[in-house]
Design a protein around this nucleic acid. Structure first.
Lengths: 227, 227
DNA sequence: GTCTATACATAGATAGAC
DNA sequence: GTCTATCTATGTATAGAC
């Protein structure tokens, strides 16, 4: 698997996202023409993510968003009923696409050792292709309303569950050491998240996606793999 | 080293903090009587950290802070000249104490292998004893003014440098494998941060400080240590 | 030193013209 | 569908009494 191939998959999926958003929010989105609606949703989301890579969602005003997206404040409110709804909408959709792509990728793996490598690599590739999205989802999760916060946590735990299952499989097949599975999955997740949370650091140091992924795989295999 | 001993060290330092804040902000803090000033600074900081464990600093209004601290809005402005200054003040002081305690602890270690274990354990203990502080410093760093943001990044890199130096020492003494040192330090930092960023998770799962620290040490030693 | 009252700015959201 | 103009709420910060 090469990063560029991966990027294409994500871009295709990215086009679907706005379609899904539209479907799932037919009640609050007032625009009738589908094509126009999707185009503008993409503009709005891109603008939001661009602004929020520099300041927080709270700090972004609707006026900011209007300037960045090139749409008027009035027009924006045809696509969501409140600023909070915009936050929820972006987050929910981001989680969905991420989860889908990740599951698809891992299904290709043969045996726990390969699945584990594939899971790590896919996640890092995915968060690279969707960096602003991942960063936004992580950092703004706490500003969600309570019920959506719950969904965000479930999603986080579900991703972790993918790794828990792979590791358990490996232990049963005697290819992995019998370590604390839950903690192992947790620290894997921590290392995966660092890639998109500390982008500035890795970029400055010219660490490539593959450098990082290979290193994480090395750490995880040193801990788990029976030689 | 036991966690409870560690907590005492931190608590002592915590008393110093407000004294330092007072000294370093003599121009903007209008209260003359030292004792009163320190007492109220502690009230203000505690209230801020308590509120900001639930919502963002931006989302916290001065009215919120007034209610939580039991001081009037007018009185609060005798301790800082703007809300942003309060943010800077808390962050700067948090960084300083954390850095000092960590350096003190590591100095006690003999040889790179022990230093590495000590560094990991101290950091996790420290972030446990000062959890709200660490969380706040991490999550609100992006809302700092540009120049303070730079200081926060420097501080982050300095902590990492501690681990880089230890690992380099270990490689030279042939007790550690010759891995990519910078990446090794980065993922160690990532695992350390997870402890205070995902507190809810570890608490729910009843993972203790020592469980976590021991596991991280296990992962790191599996990767680095030559048997 | 601390309070109450208030000025002033900015933000979210909507109404109605085009 | 999109724009401009505007209403209203909320928030920061200060002035002046106690």
């Amino acid at each position: 698997m090469i990063y560029n191939d991966f990027k294409k998959i994500v871009n295709i999926s990215k086009e679907e996202i706005s379609g899904q958003i539209l479907e799932q929010n037919r009640d609050s989105i007032k625009i009738k023409k589908e094509k126009r609606a999707i185009e503008n949703l993409i503009r709005i989301i891109d603008a939001t993510l661009a602004i929020c890579s520099k300041k927080s969602f709270q700090a972004m005003s609707i006026r900011d968003l209007s300037a960045e997206s090139g749409m008027s404040r009035g027009a924006l409110y045809s696509y969501f009923t409140s600023k909070e709804e915009l936050l929820v909408l972006i987050q929910a959709q981001g989680r969905e696409i991420a989860n889908r792509v990740l599951c698809d990728q891992i299904a290709h793996g043969n045996g726990p050792a390969e699945k584990l490598r594939l899971g790590i690599k896919s996640h890092i590739y995915l968060s690279e292709a969707m960096q602003t999205w991942f960063y936004f989802t992580y950092i703004e999760a706490r500003n969600l309303p309570k019920d959506e916060q719950k969904r965000a946590i479930e999603s986080e735990l579900q991703t972790e569950k993918i790794f828990i299952d792979i590791i358990n499989e490996g232990i049963q097949e005697k290819v992995f050491r019998d370590e604390n599975v839950v903690l192992a999955a947790s620290v894997i997740k921590a290392m995966l998240q660092d890639w998109y949370l500390k982008r500035w650091k890795y970029q400055n140091r010219k660490v490539s996606v593959d450098d990082y992924a290979d290193f994480v795989i090395n750490v995880v295999e040193s801990t788990l793999l029976i030689k």
